[in-house]
Computed example of a mutant assay.
Amino acid sequence: MEFRLAKPQDAGLIRDLVRAAYARWVPIIGREPQPMKADYERATQEHQIDMLYVSGTLVGLIETMLHSDHLWIENVAVRPGCQGQGLGLRLLAFAESKAIEAGRTELRLLTNDAFASNVALYSRVGYSVDRREPFMGGTTVYMSKKLAPAPDSRERHADSKSLQAKQT
């Protein structure tokens, strides 16, 4: 498994993967979910999209935006033939590590309430429902996950110097 940061020239690959990943929801909500209609040329320039490859094949992606107090997860998508193999969990864990590395103590996302398996998955890995709002004849579920703050790098550096001084 390897992650690669998307570039504008990856927009077509991203669009194809997202459309395939979300196609199963069209009959459930009676329309294309918003990620199927996104402008991925623009998204690759304005957001961070990390693409997950297994044996050289794009199998999933996570699109994020860093805010002053949290990391927003805009989109998580896994190729249909690869769903159910833990790749979505791997993508969420990757976002969590990015948030911690950036000094953020919260992840936020939204999903459609009709995507019950997604709501359940997010709940199982520590996300809580913040609110529900009507949207296009359905309900949007806003969720967040609190993270333990990373130790301050200056404190780690000071501790390291203190330990070195004691050892000499």
Rank of each mutant, 00 (worst) to 15 (best):
D159Y: 08
S117V: 12
R124M: 02
N118G: 11
S153Q: 11
K161R: 15
G86E: 10
P134C: 06
L58I: 08
S68H: 05
G88V: 02
A150E: 11
S153H: 08
T111Q: 08
L89F: 08
Y53W: 10
E101V: 01
R104H: 07
K98T: 00
V141P: 01
S55K: 15
T139M: 08
G81W: 11
S55N: 14
N118I: 05
W72V: 00
A116N: 08
V129A: 06
V78I: 12
W72F: 05
Y142L: 11
G103V: 03
S123T: 14
R108V: 04
A158W: 09
K145E: 01
C82G: 01
V78Q: 06
G88P: 03
P149T: 10
H157E: 13
R108G: 01
N75L: 14
D69C: 00
L71M: 05
A95N: 04
D69G: 01
A99D: 06
R124V: 01
E133S: 12
A165H: 14
K98I: 00
L107Q: 07
G88F: 01
H70V: 00
G88H: 02
F115R: 07
M143Q: 09
P134S: 11
L147A: 07
G126I: 05
S160I: 05
I100F: 01
V59H: 10
S144Q: 08
R104N: 03
V59A: 11
R131L: 06
V54M: 14
E101P: 00
R154G: 03
V125E: 01
Q83R: 15
R79F: 05
Q83W: 15
A95G: 10
S117R: 15
L107F: 07
V78F: 07
I73M: 04
V125H: 04
R104I: 02
R156I: 15
P151Y: 08
K145Q: 03
D69H: 07
A150R: 15
G137L: 05
E96I: 02
G138H: 12
V125M: 05
R90L: 03
R154L: 10
L61A: 05
Y142C: 06
N112C: 10
W72P: 00
V59I: 14
S68M: 02
L110S: 13
Q164G: 02
E74I: 04
T64A: 00
A95K: 03
E63W: 08
V141A: 03
R108F: 03
V76L: 04
P149Q: 09
L110V: 08
Q164H: 12
W72G: 00
G84M: 14
W72D: 04
G126D: 06
T139H: 06
L61D: 04
N112I: 11
A150C: 07
A102G: 06
G56K: 13
Y53K: 08
F115H: 14
Q83N: 14
K161W: 12
L92N: 01
V78K: 07
Q83V: 14
R131H: 06
V54N: 11
S68F: 03
L91M: 07
Q85V: 04
I73V: 08
L121R: 03
S153M: 12
